[in-house]
Design a protein around this nucleic acid. Structure first.
Lengths: 344, 344
DNA sequence: TTTAGCACTCAAGAGCCTCGAGTGCTAACA
DNA sequence: TGTTAGCACTCGAGGCTCTTGAGTGCTAAA
């Protein structure tokens, strides 16, 4: 268990290091008003904190920096609710309540605002279709040999895809099929669409449609092809301003990782509700063992919808980031609730 | 005018420097089989080429590197049609002819393939709606207070936007209006939509629709709000592998620029048909005075549609890039032609 | 228990040296 | 007259060494 004094010293060291990115030494600490002990005393405490694993040295005679365990303790026990960031919180609230016009836009702007306020990189994983339901399917013929397929969910999500129609397929047939599908599939959860397509519908349609198999394959491809995950990343270049990024190799590693959308999406997925902080080696992905990731989710009526995250150096302004993420995810959840309430 | 020998030497120097990124000296040159002159002779020629502005030194006693003027000459006079990149060309042809399913996907994949083949950063400016025509407008009511608006063009481009419907607006009215608009506006060029909305349609509808003004404003916002430009950037981290990027400040500058989508779009716009090479200071934007930009456009039946570009260091493999861009833009134009032919 | 004092450590930066790749110029050669 | 060999000179890069300053641990005194 840490003593009062150790707590104080640990906290001040971490706060200071987060600000300056430089190892903090006993003498500098002893000069602060908040710390009424001599350098020697502080040295003793620091040595103890190091033994306990909360601090580290960068080399034998350097000042101390927080270890990952130190950050962990800091995040778990030392982040009292702060009103210090009121101004930033208002920025978020205002921009959300400004009224948004489109869901994707809201998400994208959130990412930008967030990384601007924090100077870290923000990542937003778009809504999962998991719990949404089909509102409408539609096929629009553009020419004898091309068409565009549109799928709309009850949450207003629109997917579309244009494709060419081979000569042997009759566009009119396609439209007929889509009409039938529309009647029968409305309200079906998107995830169940593939099986419904297959099991329930085909019998009915076979009777009506000439050359059914080919047309069916076509529709299936048009509507059910898997969509890539939606990932918005804001402020990629922000991190370059952090002093830990003075090393070209680190930059390379960072950008190589961040451009791998699949890996990023994988990283964010599976974070359930609430705010979660992952520090350094706690991260599964090797590429961000030097980073901390803070995730929060925004929701629509209890079903998790998406994830907001901030990625920064382990030396991160945890307080600020946690506060802001909390506000943002609540505001988004509220906004989405208002937005979609009464949706079937 | 350059002599035979000067031409040879200039070309070899540029080729060599493009490969190695190191200043090339007279002695190294004289050892090459293709150059049967002694180091001293070469030194004399190099001095002349420097006087003429085609070469530079990095410091008083360094080897020579091409000047921007040198690259310009190289690009204008020394790039004979090359079959050397047959293999890469085939990669492009194959992937395009693999059959694509969606326009946006094609564009995005092109960007990726291109930057993979070249190791530079590729930028693709999405199609302009300029010449496309309206195929269909649609409004889908999700709930009493939200709806999604969808706009489809004759080229299969789909734009959509969800928005909330204030209590005082009757969704049935909206649908009625959209039906009327659909009848009257089909085939109208997208750019003319705003004026058509205003001038031709309002009189007709005022008669039919209760509380017309509000509903009208709403529809207008839903369908006519300006869309941001579509910009795909592929292989952003590729350039980090180039030796000229060993400087953190340069990296910062590069990423800051590349994330500014508007500026990038502006840079690519206004490049008419054909392939255009802009070297170093020939670029308007300060941020890429160190880079070269090679642009090509892909077309649909003569109307310019979009721009493909590659951004790299001035020390760029111009031959390869030009060859590949040429192939890609032709292939895309062909593919789009097949795709959209017979479209109204 | 706290503090002062002292010997010790290390990173970072400045200064210096060496090495190698390059140049320009001059004089000799074909 | 064009080409080449030779020589003195230049400069960047990398390796050494030294100094400085911020820091530590340990011991002994208050």
């Amino acid at each position: 268990m840490l003593t009062e004094r150790q707590l104080l010293i640990l906290q001040v060291i971490i706060d200071d290091f987060i600000q300056t990115a430089r190892p903090v030494g006993s003498r500098a600490l002893s000069k602060k008003n908040s710390i009424p002990y001599s350098a020697a005393t502080i040295r003793n405490e620091m040595a103890d904190l190091e033994d306990m694993g909360y601090l580290e040295k960068t080399h034998l005679s350097s000042g101390r920096i927080p270890s990952e365990q130190g950050y962990r303790y800091y995040v778990d026990h030392m982040i009292s609710p702060v009103t210090k960031f009121n101004q930033d919180m208002n920025v978020i609230k205002n921009f959300i309540n400004d009224g948004f016009f489109e869901f994707e836009q809201l998400v994208q702007m959130s990412a930008e605002v967030l990384s601007e306020l924090t100077n870290y990189t923000s990542i937003i994983l778009g809504p999962e279709l998991f719990e949404t339901k089909l509102k409408q399917l539609q096929i629009i013929t553009l020419s004898p040999n091309s068409a565009v397929a549109i799928l709309v969910t009850n949450t207003g999500y629109v997917e579309h895809r244009s494709f060419s129609v081979p000569a042997e397929i009759n566009p009119a047939d396609l439209e007929k099929m889509v009409n039938i599908l529309n009647d029968r599939l409305q309200g079906v959860p998107i995830v169940r669409l593939p099986e419904m397509f297959h099991s329930e519908i085909t019998d009915l349609m076979k009777a009506y449609i000439h050359d059914f198999d080919k047309s069916y394959d076509y529709l299936k491809a048009a509507f059910l092809q898997e969509q890539p995950v939606k990932l918005y990343i804001g402020g990629k270049s922000n991190l370059l301003r952090q002093p830990e990024f003075n090393d070209v190799d680190k930059i390379r590693a960072f950008y190589t990782m961040i451009e791998n959308e699949n890996e990023m999406a994988h990283l964010l997925k599976g974070t359930s509700g609430g705010i979660k902080v992952t520090i350094g080696h706690e991260n599964k992905a090797d590429a961000i063992k030097d980073f901390s990731l803070i995730t929060a989710s925004y929701q629509l009526g209890g079903d998790q919808m998406g994830t907001i995250a901030l990625l920064g150096p382990t030396r991160m302004e945890y307080r600020k980031v946690i506060t802001l993420l909390d506000v943002l995810s609540n505001e988004m959840t509220d906004a989405l609730y208002l937005w979609y309430k009464n949706t079937d």
